[in-house]
């Protein structure tokens, strides 16, 4: 894994950083299997380079970028974000990347564009988890943001973690990180970004609409229908069983409310969950 050159960002939380070992072996990336260790164990055949990422839809100039070029040319920053999974655990991860807005701006969105749709690569021969009699999700994995969410400075395209390029299990070579939303919104191994005027279809919303809404902002007040979201277990605090339960109260918008709450002014987040 090549080290990345990045400037230090001001977007840094002061919480203890999750050990790299934990952040790279405890992953949800169902294309490689549904157990937490599967992505690290079974993503060895996945080829993240060379990689093209396309921006199309309601833009003036549809574009295709080579990810190696992006890594070389974009102003990379290291940001330390809280990462809150919908399964009520969390990590603190140093990402290297650039603002998603920087990428979208280059394609010049049309005035009619209201949403941004993202799509993960689908390569059955490199992804052992996508086959089977009962596909776990309706592949390819899809996610979406409202355009104003996508243009928010906290939303980044990450190309690295812990100072190195992304390992396959963490979404190599390029992924979204939206720290105020549940982790599954931060779609991995992105192949295509499409600007649209309609709310995009998203993988988890299709799988269970009552459980995973389009917005999926971190919200301790709205329980998942099957479990509470009021608290989260902070992973990688060490000590095994006897390091304490490592629980903390979940913060609304994952603690990024000051920056992002205005995006949802006037909305009822219990309805638009």
């Amino acid at each position: 894994e090549a080290a990345l050159k990045a400037s230090q960002s001001t977007y840094i939380v002061n919480d203890k950083i999750t050990p790299r070992e934990d952040a790279t072996t405890y992953n949800n990336y169902y294309e490689f299997g549904t157990s937490k260790g599967d992505p690290a164990a079974y993503s060895g055949d996945f080829k993240p380079m060379p990689w093209k990422i396309k921006i199309d839809g309601l833009v003036k100039t549809p574009m295709e970028f080579d990810v190696a070029d992006l890594i070389a040319k974009m102003p990379l920053e290291e940001r330390i974000y809280r990462f809150r999974c919908v399964e009520a655990w969390s990590m603190v991860v140093p990402w290297t990347g650039f603002a998603l807005s920087e990428l979208i701006k280059q394609a010049e969105p049309l005035g009619s564009a209201k949403y941004v749709a993202f799509q993960t690569a689908l390569r059955p021969e490199e992804m052992p988890g996508v086959g089977g009699f009962t596909p776990v999700l309706d592949w390819p994995y899809r996610e979406g943001l409202r355009l104003d969410e996508a243009m928010h400075p906290l939303a980044i395209m990450a190309v690295g973690i812990y100072g190195d390029v992304l390992p396959n299990q963490n979404g190599a070579p390029i992924r979204l990180v939206v720290p105020w939303k549940y982790g599954f919104k931060s779609i991995k191994s992105i192949e295509k970004i499409t600007l649209t005027d309609k709310q995009p279809v998203t993988a988890w919303n299709v799988a269970a609409p009552g459980e995973y809404g389009f917005y999926s902002n971190v919200n301790p007040e709205r329980d998942h229908p099957r479990w509470s979201q009021a608290q989260e277990r902070v992973l990688g605090t060490g000590g095994g069983f006897f390091g304490g339960t490592g629980k903390r109260d979940t913060e609304k918008f994952n603690g990024y409310g000051e920056e992002v709450a205005h995006l949802y002014a006037g909305m009822d987040l219990m309805v638009d969950y």
């Binding site: 999750t18 070992e21 934990d22 952040a23 072996t25 405890y26 937490k36 260790g37 655990w89 990590m91 277990r233 992973l235 990688g236 060490g238 000590g239 095994g240 069983f241 006897f242 390091g243 339960t245």
Partner: peptide, 16 residues
């Protein structure tokens, strides 16, 4: 239990 006690049961030992 032994692996969990010595912190060798992954990132989320209790749930695992």
């Amino acid at each position: 239990f032994y692996h969990g006690a010595i912190n060798d049961l992954g990132a989320n030992p209790i749930q695992t």
